[in-house]
Protein backbone atom coordinates (compact mmCIF):
# COMPACT_ATOMS: atom_id res chain seq x y z
CA UNK A 1 0.00 0.00 0.00
CA UNK A 2 1.28 3.44 -0.96
CA UNK A 3 1.19 6.75 0.89
CA UNK A 4 -1.47 8.97 -0.61
CA UNK A 5 0.91 11.93 -0.45
CA UNK A 6 4.35 10.73 -1.47
CA UNK A 7 3.73 7.22 -2.88
CA UNK A 8 6.25 5.81 -0.39
CA UNK A 9 5.42 2.72 1.69
CA UNK A 10 2.33 3.31 3.82
CA UNK A 11 2.29 2.31 7.48
CA UNK A 12 -1.23 3.37 8.49
CA UNK A 13 -4.50 3.07 6.65
CA UNK A 14 -7.28 5.53 7.38
CA UNK A 15 -10.17 3.80 5.67
CA UNK A 16 -12.74 6.39 6.70
CA UNK A 17 -10.81 8.90 4.58
CA UNK A 18 -10.00 6.36 1.83
CA UNK A 19 -6.36 7.03 2.59
CA UNK A 20 -3.09 5.46 3.67
CA UNK A 21 0.01 7.31 4.83
CA UNK A 22 3.73 6.87 5.43
CA UNK A 23 4.93 7.84 8.92
CA UNK A 24 5.64 11.48 8.07
CA UNK A 25 2.41 12.06 6.24
CA UNK A 26 0.40 10.24 8.89
CA UNK A 27 1.76 12.68 11.47
CA UNK A 28 0.86 15.53 9.13
CA UNK A 29 -2.69 14.12 8.79
CA UNK A 30 -2.97 13.75 12.58
CA UNK A 31 -1.73 17.30 13.22
CA UNK A 32 -4.20 18.69 10.74
CA UNK A 33 -7.15 16.88 12.34
CA UNK A 34 -6.21 18.09 15.82
CA UNK A 35 -5.57 21.66 14.66
CA UNK A 36 -8.92 21.66 12.91
CA UNK A 37 -10.71 20.36 16.03
CA UNK A 38 -9.13 23.11 18.14
CA UNK A 39 -10.06 25.84 15.66
CA UNK A 40 -13.52 24.61 14.61
CA UNK A 41 -14.65 24.31 18.21
CA UNK A 42 -12.66 27.34 19.44
CA UNK A 43 -11.04 25.28 22.18
CA UNK A 44 -8.05 27.49 22.97
CA UNK A 45 -5.30 29.55 21.39
CA UNK A 46 -1.53 29.61 21.74
CA UNK A 47 -1.98 32.26 24.46
CA UNK A 48 -3.90 29.88 26.73
CA UNK A 49 -2.22 27.71 29.32
CA UNK A 50 -3.64 24.24 28.80
CA UNK A 51 -3.65 21.52 31.46
CA UNK A 52 -3.61 18.08 29.83
CA UNK A 53 -5.00 15.19 31.85
CA UNK A 54 -2.40 12.46 31.33
CA UNK A 55 -3.01 8.84 32.32
CA UNK A 56 0.01 7.23 30.68
CA UNK A 57 -2.23 5.65 28.04
CA UNK A 58 -2.00 6.17 24.28
CA UNK A 59 -4.64 8.88 23.94
CA UNK A 60 -3.50 11.26 26.63
CA UNK A 61 0.22 10.91 25.82
CA UNK A 62 -0.55 11.39 22.12
CA UNK A 63 -2.59 14.49 22.99
CA UNK A 64 0.10 15.97 25.16
CA UNK A 65 2.70 15.29 22.48
CA UNK A 66 0.73 16.72 19.58
CA UNK A 67 -0.24 19.87 21.50
CA UNK A 68 3.36 20.55 22.41
CA UNK A 69 4.51 19.92 18.84
CA UNK A 70 1.84 22.29 17.54
CA UNK A 71 3.23 25.01 19.79
CA UNK A 72 0.62 25.09 22.55
CA UNK A 73 1.56 25.69 26.20
CA UNK A 74 0.52 22.26 27.47
CA UNK A 75 1.34 21.11 31.00
CA UNK A 76 0.54 17.52 32.00
CA UNK A 77 -1.41 16.53 35.09
CA UNK A 78 -1.05 12.96 36.29
CA UNK A 79 -3.38 11.72 39.02
CA UNK A 80 -2.25 8.77 41.09
CA UNK A 81 -5.44 6.79 41.72
CA UNK A 82 -3.72 4.17 43.86
CA UNK A 83 -4.80 1.26 41.65
CA UNK A 84 -1.86 -1.06 42.40
CA UNK A 85 0.50 -2.07 39.60
CA UNK A 86 -1.59 -0.29 37.00
CA UNK A 87 -1.07 3.07 38.69
CA UNK A 88 2.64 2.42 39.24
CA UNK A 89 3.20 1.57 35.57
CA UNK A 90 1.16 4.44 34.22
CA UNK A 91 2.95 6.88 36.52
CA UNK A 92 6.34 5.60 35.37
CA UNK A 93 5.44 5.97 31.68
CA UNK A 94 4.10 9.47 32.21
CA UNK A 95 7.23 10.62 34.04
CA UNK A 96 9.42 8.96 31.40
CA UNK A 97 7.66 10.92 28.66
CA UNK A 98 7.96 14.20 30.56
CA UNK A 99 11.67 13.63 31.24
CA UNK A 100 12.48 12.60 27.67
CA UNK A 101 10.70 15.62 26.17
CA UNK A 102 11.33 18.24 28.83
CA UNK A 103 7.57 18.60 29.32
CA UNK A 104 6.06 20.20 32.44
CA UNK A 105 4.22 17.71 34.64
CA UNK A 106 2.10 18.18 37.76
CA UNK A 107 1.19 15.18 39.93
CA UNK A 108 -1.78 14.81 42.26
CA UNK A 109 -1.91 11.85 44.59
CA UNK A 110 -5.28 10.62 45.83
CA UNK A 111 -4.10 8.09 48.46
CA UNK A 112 -1.63 10.63 49.82
CA UNK A 113 -4.07 13.49 49.94
CA UNK A 114 -7.23 11.66 50.98
CA UNK A 115 -5.84 8.65 52.80
CA UNK A 116 -7.53 6.17 50.44
CA UNK A 117 -7.22 4.87 46.92
CA UNK A 118 -10.19 5.40 44.58
CA UNK A 119 -11.10 1.74 45.07
CA UNK A 120 -11.19 2.17 48.85
CA UNK A 121 -13.21 5.36 48.43
CA UNK A 122 -15.61 3.38 46.25
CA UNK A 123 -15.94 0.52 48.73
CA UNK A 124 -16.44 2.86 51.68
CA UNK A 125 -19.24 4.69 49.88
CA UNK A 126 -20.75 1.65 48.12
CA UNK A 127 -20.06 2.94 44.65
CA UNK A 128 -18.52 1.08 41.76
CA UNK A 129 -14.84 1.88 41.34
CA UNK A 130 -15.25 3.76 38.07
CA UNK A 131 -17.84 6.06 39.59
CA UNK A 132 -15.62 7.06 42.53
CA UNK A 133 -12.67 7.28 40.18
CA UNK A 134 -14.40 9.40 37.55
CA UNK A 135 -15.72 11.78 40.19
CA UNK A 136 -12.27 12.12 41.80
CA UNK A 137 -10.57 12.77 38.48
CA UNK A 138 -13.06 15.40 37.33
CA UNK A 139 -12.75 17.08 40.71
CA UNK A 140 -8.97 17.13 40.76
CA UNK A 141 -8.54 18.18 37.12
CA UNK A 142 -10.64 21.24 37.80
CA UNK A 143 -9.19 22.05 41.19
CA UNK A 144 -5.59 21.78 40.05
CA UNK A 145 -6.40 23.82 36.94
CA UNK A 146 -8.00 26.61 38.95
CA UNK A 147 -5.33 26.54 41.68
CA UNK A 148 -2.54 26.81 39.11
CA UNK A 149 -4.13 29.38 36.84
CA UNK A 150 -5.00 27.19 33.85
CA UNK A 151 -8.10 28.22 31.95
CA UNK A 152 -8.51 25.01 29.96
CA UNK A 153 -8.39 21.30 30.81
CA UNK A 154 -7.83 19.00 27.83
CA UNK A 155 -8.57 15.27 27.92
CA UNK A 156 -7.62 12.54 25.44
CA UNK A 157 -11.15 11.43 24.53
CA UNK A 158 -11.10 10.28 20.92
CA UNK A 159 -13.75 9.75 18.25
CA UNK A 160 -14.45 6.20 19.42
CA UNK A 161 -14.88 7.31 23.04
CA UNK A 162 -17.31 10.03 22.07
CA UNK A 163 -19.23 7.86 19.61
CA UNK A 164 -19.56 5.15 22.29
CA UNK A 165 -20.87 7.65 24.85
CA UNK A 166 -23.29 8.98 22.25
CA UNK A 167 -24.52 5.48 21.44
CA UNK A 168 -25.04 4.77 25.16
CA UNK A 169 -26.93 8.02 25.61
CA UNK A 170 -29.08 7.30 22.56
CA UNK A 171 -29.88 3.74 23.62
CA UNK A 172 -31.47 5.16 26.74
CA UNK A 173 -32.52 8.52 25.29
CA UNK A 174 -30.70 10.39 28.02
CA UNK A 175 -31.69 13.75 26.63
CA UNK A 176 -29.97 15.78 29.33
CA UNK A 177 -26.68 14.00 28.77
CA UNK A 178 -27.16 14.30 25.03
CA UNK A 179 -27.68 18.04 25.35
CA UNK A 180 -24.41 18.34 27.27
CA UNK A 181 -22.26 16.03 25.13
CA UNK A 182 -19.75 18.23 23.37
CA UNK A 183 -16.03 18.47 22.59
CA UNK A 184 -16.06 21.77 24.49
CA UNK A 185 -17.76 22.45 27.80
CA UNK A 186 -17.43 26.14 28.45
CA UNK A 187 -16.88 27.56 31.88
CA UNK A 188 -20.12 28.58 33.57
CA UNK A 189 -18.56 29.56 36.89
CA UNK A 190 -15.42 31.54 37.78
CA UNK A 191 -13.95 28.43 39.41
CA UNK A 192 -14.77 26.08 36.57
CA UNK A 193 -12.15 25.52 33.86
CA UNK A 194 -13.24 25.00 30.26
CA UNK A 195 -13.05 21.34 29.24
CA UNK A 196 -11.99 20.34 25.76
CA UNK A 197 -11.40 17.14 23.78
CA UNK A 198 -9.01 17.94 20.94
CA UNK A 199 -8.88 14.32 19.72
CA UNK A 200 -12.57 14.07 18.87
CA UNK A 201 -11.69 13.90 15.16
CA UNK A 202 -9.13 11.12 15.76
CA UNK A 203 -10.14 7.45 15.77
CA UNK A 204 -8.84 5.33 18.61
CA UNK A 205 -6.76 3.24 16.23
CA UNK A 206 -5.15 6.40 14.88
CA UNK A 207 -4.25 7.64 18.36
CA UNK A 208 -2.46 4.36 19.06
CA UNK A 209 -0.74 4.51 15.66
CA UNK A 210 0.41 8.06 16.37
CA UNK A 211 1.93 6.99 19.71
CA UNK A 212 3.77 4.13 18.04
CA UNK A 213 5.00 6.17 15.07
CA UNK A 214 6.23 8.86 17.48
CA UNK A 215 8.00 6.26 19.60
CA UNK A 216 5.96 7.04 22.71
CA UNK A 217 6.06 4.26 25.27
CA UNK A 218 2.52 4.16 26.67
CA UNK A 219 0.78 1.74 29.01
CA UNK A 220 -0.96 -0.88 26.87
CA UNK A 221 -2.51 -2.87 29.70
CA UNK A 222 -5.83 -1.60 30.85
CA UNK A 223 -6.96 -0.57 34.29
CA UNK A 224 -8.27 -3.81 35.87
CA UNK A 225 -11.58 -2.10 36.63
CA UNK A 226 -12.38 -1.51 32.97
CA UNK A 227 -13.17 -5.20 32.42
CA UNK A 228 -16.81 -5.56 31.41
CA UNK A 229 -17.38 -1.83 31.01
CA UNK A 230 -20.42 -0.95 28.92
CA UNK A 231 -18.32 1.43 26.84
CA UNK A 232 -16.32 -1.56 25.55
CA UNK A 233 -19.50 -3.22 24.30
CA UNK A 234 -20.56 -0.04 22.52
CA UNK A 235 -17.13 0.32 20.98
CA UNK A 236 -17.21 -3.25 19.73
CA UNK A 237 -20.63 -2.70 18.18
CA UNK A 238 -19.43 0.51 16.52
CA UNK A 239 -16.31 -1.21 15.20
CA UNK A 240 -18.47 -3.87 13.56
CA UNK A 241 -20.37 -1.10 11.80
CA UNK A 242 -17.13 0.68 10.95
CA UNK A 243 -15.64 -2.42 9.39
CA UNK A 244 -18.66 -2.96 7.16
CA UNK A 245 -19.08 0.72 6.43
CA UNK A 246 -15.96 2.86 6.96
CA UNK A 247 -16.84 6.28 8.32
CA UNK A 248 -19.78 5.03 10.43
CA UNK A 249 -18.33 6.34 13.69
CA UNK A 250 -17.53 9.80 12.42
CA UNK A 251 -20.86 10.01 10.65
CA UNK A 252 -22.63 9.20 13.91
CA UNK A 253 -20.68 11.59 16.12
CA UNK A 254 -19.86 14.45 13.78
CA UNK A 255 -23.41 14.30 12.44
CA UNK A 256 -24.64 14.66 16.00
CA UNK A 257 -22.41 17.70 16.53
CA UNK A 258 -23.48 19.33 13.27
CA UNK A 259 -27.18 18.54 13.25
CA UNK A 260 -28.28 16.59 16.31
CA UNK A 261 -27.28 18.65 19.31
CA UNK A 262 -28.97 21.81 18.08
CA UNK A 263 -32.32 19.99 18.31
CA UNK A 264 -31.81 19.38 22.01
CA UNK A 265 -31.69 23.00 23.11
CA UNK A 266 -30.09 24.01 26.39
CA UNK A 267 -31.68 21.59 28.83
CA UNK A 268 -28.24 20.52 29.98
CA UNK A 269 -27.43 23.92 31.46
CA UNK A 270 -27.49 24.00 35.26
CA UNK A 271 -26.81 26.77 37.76
CA UNK A 272 -23.59 26.33 39.75
CA UNK A 273 -22.56 27.66 43.14
CA UNK A 274 -19.56 27.18 45.41
CA UNK A 275 -19.40 24.06 47.59
CA UNK A 276 -19.68 25.22 51.22
CA UNK A 277 -16.82 22.90 52.19
CA UNK A 278 -14.28 23.28 49.45
CA UNK A 279 -15.39 26.19 47.29
CA UNK A 280 -15.40 24.23 44.04
CA UNK A 281 -18.40 24.67 41.75
CA UNK A 282 -21.34 22.35 42.32
CA UNK A 283 -25.09 22.14 41.83
CA UNK A 284 -25.68 21.21 45.49
CA UNK A 285 -24.72 22.79 48.79
CA UNK A 286 -21.88 20.32 49.33
CA UNK A 287 -20.23 18.98 46.18
CA UNK A 288 -20.40 15.30 45.28
CA UNK A 289 -16.69 14.84 45.89
CA UNK A 290 -16.80 16.29 49.41
CA UNK A 291 -19.88 14.19 50.15
CA UNK A 292 -18.06 11.08 49.00
CA UNK A 293 -14.80 11.70 50.86
CA UNK A 294 -16.61 12.79 54.03
CA UNK A 295 -18.77 9.70 53.98
CA UNK A 296 -15.72 7.52 53.44
CA UNK A 297 -13.86 9.22 56.32
CA UNK A 298 -16.91 8.77 58.52
CA UNK A 299 -17.07 5.05 57.81
CA UNK A 300 -13.38 4.69 58.55
CA UNK A 301 -13.89 6.36 61.92
CA UNK A 302 -16.81 4.06 62.73
CA UNK A 303 -14.72 1.06 61.76
CA UNK A 304 -11.85 2.22 63.94
CA UNK A 305 -14.30 2.56 66.83
CA UNK A 306 -14.09 6.34 67.00
CA UNK A 307 -17.88 6.76 66.67
CA UNK A 308 -19.71 9.44 64.76
CA UNK A 309 -18.64 12.27 67.04
CA UNK A 310 -14.90 11.68 66.75
CA UNK A 311 -12.82 14.34 65.02
CA UNK A 312 -12.23 13.90 61.33
CA UNK A 313 -9.41 11.50 60.55
CA UNK A 314 -8.98 11.69 56.81
CA UNK A 315 -11.52 14.38 56.00
CA UNK A 316 -10.25 15.85 52.77
CA UNK A 317 -11.85 19.26 53.06
CA UNK A 318 -9.91 22.46 53.24
CA UNK A 319 -8.01 22.66 50.02
CA UNK A 320 -10.36 20.22 48.29
CA UNK A 321 -13.36 20.85 46.00
CA UNK A 322 -15.18 19.15 43.05
CA UNK A 323 -17.18 20.08 39.99
CA UNK A 324 -19.74 17.30 40.14
CA UNK A 325 -21.63 18.40 37.07
CA UNK A 326 -19.26 16.21 35.15
CA UNK A 327 -21.13 14.89 32.12
CA UNK A 328 -19.55 12.13 30.13
CA UNK A 329 -15.88 12.73 30.62
Amino acid sequence: MRCQRCRGDAVVEVRRHHAAFCSDHFIEFFDRQVQRAIEDERMFTRDDRVLVAVSGGKDSLALWDVLRRLGYAATGLYINLGIGGYSDDSHRKTVAYADAHGADLLVADIPQEFGMSVEELARATRRVSCSACGLSKRYLFNRVAIDHGFTVVATGHNLDDEAAVLLGNLLHWQTEYLARQSPVLSSTHPKLARKVKPLYRIAEREAAAYAIVRGIDYIVDECPNSVGAKSLLYKEALNLLEQASPGAKQSLYWGFLERGRALLGTQGVVALRACVHCGQPTTAEVCAFCRMTERAAERMRVRRGGGAGAPAAAAPVGAAGAPDAGGSG
Binding site: M1, S55, G57, K58, D59, C130, S131, C133, G134, K137, D160, E204, R205, A207, A208, I212, V220, E222, C223, N225, S226, V227, A229, K230, S231, L232, K235, E236, N239, G329
Partner: peptide, 20 residues
Amino acid sequence: AQLGDDDTIELRPVVSGGID
Protein backbone atom coordinates in the same frame (compact mmCIF):
# COMPACT_ATOMS: atom_id res chain seq x y z
CA ALA B 1 1.38 -6.40 4.02
CA GLN B 2 2.73 -9.88 3.29
CA LEU B 3 3.73 -12.00 6.29
CA GLY B 4 6.22 -14.85 6.17
CA ASP B 5 6.93 -17.91 8.27
CA ASP B 6 9.87 -16.34 10.08
CA ASP B 7 7.98 -13.28 11.23
CA THR B 8 6.99 -12.44 14.78
CA ILE B 9 3.85 -10.34 14.76
CA GLU B 10 2.15 -8.44 17.56
CA LEU B 11 -1.56 -7.69 17.51
CA ARG B 12 -1.83 -4.65 19.74
CA PRO B 13 -5.34 -3.81 21.00
CA VAL B 14 -6.33 -0.17 20.55
CA VAL B 15 -9.64 -0.19 22.40
CA SER B 16 -9.54 1.23 25.92
CA GLY B 17 -12.43 1.00 28.33
CA GLY B 18 -13.68 2.49 31.55
CA ILE B 19 -16.08 5.34 31.94
CA ASP B 20 -13.48 8.04 32.09
